[in-house]
Structures are given as C-alpha cells and as structure tokens.
Amino acid sequence: MSTFQTYTIENAPAASKASLEDTQRAFGFVPNLQANMAESPALLAGIRRCGICSRKAR
C-alpha cells in the first residue's frame, strides 16, 4: 500500500505553502486532504480554483 506524506506549512514544497496558508486562514487548520495534496502544487492549486475545498463551496 502506498503512503502519502502529510505536509505542514513548514515542510511543504515552496510552491504549495501559500495555498496551505490560505487554507489555514479559512478553516483554522490544514485538512489532511490538502496536506497530502501539497506534494503536487499543481493539484493543490487546481482544487483551490475549483472551490472544492473552500468555505465558499459550502
């Protein structure tokens, strides 16, 4: 079974840090789904653009 790195703002790839910081401001924490997707800055940015993981989507 594959395992995924669960990133924090401190250890995330540089291109993912701003997205994780925005998520932290919106939710008060970084959900595991986004912490795992931080491995791919393009994936994380795409999910944010779609509004799937945002307070506005609710």
Rank of each mutant, 00 (worst) to 15 (best):
K56Q: 13
V30G: 02
P13D: 09
A35K: 08
C50D: 10
R58I: 05
Q34N: 03
R25A: 15
F29K: 05
C53E: 13
A57F: 09
A18H: 04
R58M: 12
L44W: 07
L44A: 05
A18M: 09
S40L: 07
K56P: 00
Q34G: 03
Q24P: 00
A14L: 02
G46Y: 11
A12L: 06
A45H: 11
I9D: 00
S40C: 10
R55M: 14
P31V: 10
A26R: 10
R48S: 12
L20K: 04
E21A: 11
T6Y: 01
G28M: 09
L33C: 07
P13W: 02
P13M: 08
F29Y: 15
R48L: 11
A42I: 04
A15R: 08
T8K: 02
C50E: 15
R49E: 13
A38G: 02
G28D: 09
S19I: 04
A38R: 01
D22W: 01
G28S: 10
F29S: 06
K17N: 02
L44G: 03
C50H: 10
S54N: 07
P31Y: 05
P31C: 09
F4L: 11
M1K: 08
N11H: 05
S2L: 08
S19F: 12
A15Q: 15
T6V: 14
D22R: 13
G28F: 10
Q24A: 13
G46E: 13
E21K: 12
Q5F: 05
N11G: 10
T6W: 00
L44Y: 05
F27A: 03
K56T: 09
A35L: 04
L20H: 09
R49I: 04
Q5R: 15
E21M: 08
M37I: 01
T6G: 03
Q24N: 14
P31H: 10
A35M: 02
I9Y: 01
G28W: 05
A15S: 12
S2C: 00
G28H: 11
P31A: 08
E21L: 04
L20G: 04
P41E: 07
N32H: 06
C50V: 13
A18W: 07
A45E: 14
G28K: 04
L43C: 06
A14T: 06
L20A: 06
A18P: 02
S40D: 13
Q34S: 00
S40K: 12
L20Y: 11
E39L: 09
L33D: 07
G28T: 11
P13F: 09
K17I: 07
N36M: 15
A26N: 12
R25M: 08
T23A: 06
D22E: 15
R48V: 08
L43A: 11
F27G: 00
T3K: 10
L33A: 14
D22G: 06
Y7R: 06
S16R: 02
F29E: 13
F4E: 09
I9V: 14
P41L: 09
S2E: 12
A42E: 11
P31E: 09
A12H: 00
A42Q: 13
A38S: 02
I47K: 00
K17H: 00
I47G: 01
R49A: 14
K56W: 02
A38N: 01
V30A: 07
D22Q: 13
A57P: 03
A26P: 07
S54Q: 11
L20T: 03
N32W: 01
T6N: 07
T23K: 01
G46R: 06
Q5C: 04
A15G: 13
A26D: 15
M37L: 14
I47L: 14
R49S: 12
